[in-house]
Amino acid sequence: MEINRHDERPGVVMSLKDKDDINAFSRHLARKNELKRRTERRKKLIQLHEDANDELILLDDDAPVHYNIGDVFILDSKQDVEHTLEQTITELNNDVEQFTAELAQIEQSMTKLKATLYAKFGKTINLEE
């Protein structure tokens, strides 16, 4: 996002409100990127946990499983580990849902700001990511 140099439209004067809009846009953009990053990370974790869950199914029912907590692997029963995994996956999914909702909201206000700013400044302002 930037303001192009050299060819500011003569006659177009930037007001305090325009500046505030630009700031708001930039803040939204930063938050959007952060949310995207976080969603990616969660999704990766969900994939890993689901893979682990799939592997568990292949095991005997009474086989003990090592589950990693912090720096330690704890020997646990298969049912307990399955339960823990599923719980973690639910938590992660909740996070993803929350992020997606916020993302949609942000994108909406970004579109609005984009329309306003482009209408006024045209090609002299670049709001692409």
Binding site: E2, I3, R5, E8, M14, K19, I22, N23, S26, R27, A30
Partner: peptide
């Protein structure tokens, strides 16, 4: 970031 943007906008103008 707001302050930074404000300054950059000033600078460009």
């Amino acid at each position: 970031r707001d302050q930074l943007n404000t300054t950059d906008v000033n600078l460009s103008r």
